[in-house]
Design a protein around this nucleic acid. Structure first.
Lengths: 190, 190
DNA sequence: TTCGTTTGCCAACACTTGTTGACAGAACGG
DNA sequence: CCGTTCTGTCAACAAGTGTTGGCAAACGAA
């Protein structure tokens, strides 16, 4: 099944071009013709190898957050570990534009939103569940953590709110870490 | 200039239909034909009264956050005042779908993103500046507050992450209020 | 070589998009 | 009454969309 086909190069070129376009423009504004042009091939090839625009998107937005395993982290460093990982992943140039792909498209495309829900529902919940005292509180804590981390990425890298973009990385990390630390460990008021 | 034209009813119907559609589908997927159909008129009327799709969007997404004046609020209630106002505005049914309009479209449409930057840059910064000790810190604090408030709205009302949707309103308010209170008043580590 | 398969391009389909201009009737001022 | 303006419809345009099928060349096994 994993033979190296002669078309592998083309397939990879399509996927790379698709990620660039989806990340830059979102799902709706990205056209198969533009992707094909970027990849230097004919639009019909995209259909042949990925079936449809939706199929191509699914292939392009398949990602792993690689969240750190929090179970081995000292309790008082949980927030910082998570936030630092998150921030540095986003700051790390274009290497992880997959996140932007998913993000940009999830706002308007329902299947992309479902994919984002799955990614966060599973991966963040798993990371959080490993360190929470009361398992019943795990979903709520994971949800709160998600609001802060997604909000941070949204403001700094998608909408690019000037004051958020201007924030010093270390200030950002240390301030937001305190928040996430509280969401993970502080008693949940109600 | 503010005569009551006979077409005012049509103009209003177009605007209402446009807000519904933009909020539900975002800018790109919303078609003038669909808006016209909802409003029960011909697509060409939309062009006549609003010039273009962009013009219609600008008219539909013109909004005021109505953030409370924090200068009269006791210092220890700043966070809760802001967060409660924000959450209740979003929870208040469809009455404020304008926010969703702007939000959904800002991700893929550059002029909408600019509009969102303006709204937050101006209105949040103004509200925050009124209560911050060191004026030099105001933009950073406003930025941090924005990440939490936008992230909250994103997760709960746009992407609809299940654990965030499931959160009890009062738990949500009190927990996030603590965060915003810290962003407004706690020393900024660096 | 000879055959079938793979890879790619070309042209076209059927459809939707934003937008425009011509035209019919109502409303209104003179 | 006339003539003008306003409000609305209809039909069409030019462009762009995802998608499909046919065909030529390159390849790989026999």
């Amino acid at each position: 099944m994993t033979f190296t086909r002669r078309s592998d190069h083309t397939r990879a070129a399509i996927l790379a071009a698709a990620r660039d376009r989806f990340a830059a423009d979102g799902f709706e504004r990205t056209t198969i013709r533009a992707i094909a042009a970027d990849a230097g091939i004919d639009p019909s090839m995209v259909m042949r190898y990925y079936g449809s625009k939706d199929g191509l998107f699914a292939a392009a937005a398949d990602l792993d957050l690689h969240l750190p395993d929090l179970s081995t982290v000292p309790r008082e460093q949980l927030g910082e570990t998570l936030v630092r990982h998150w921030v540095e992943r986003w700051e790390g140039g274009l290497s992880d534009e997959l996140l932007i792909v998913l993000f940009r498209s999830a706002i308007t495309n329902e299947s992309a939103a479902e994919q984002l829900r799955t990614v966060f529902g599973a991966q963040v919940a798993k990371a959080v569940a490993a360190v929470v005292d009361d398992p019943a509180e795990a979903p709520a804590r994971a949800g709160l953590v998600s609001t802060q981390m997604l909000g941070l990425a949204l403001c700094r890298h998608i909408v690019r709110l000037p004051p958020v973009v201007a924030l010093d990385v270390e200030t950002l990390i240390s301030t937001v870490s305190d928040t996430v630390q509280r969401y993970l460990t502080a008693p949940l008021t109600s």
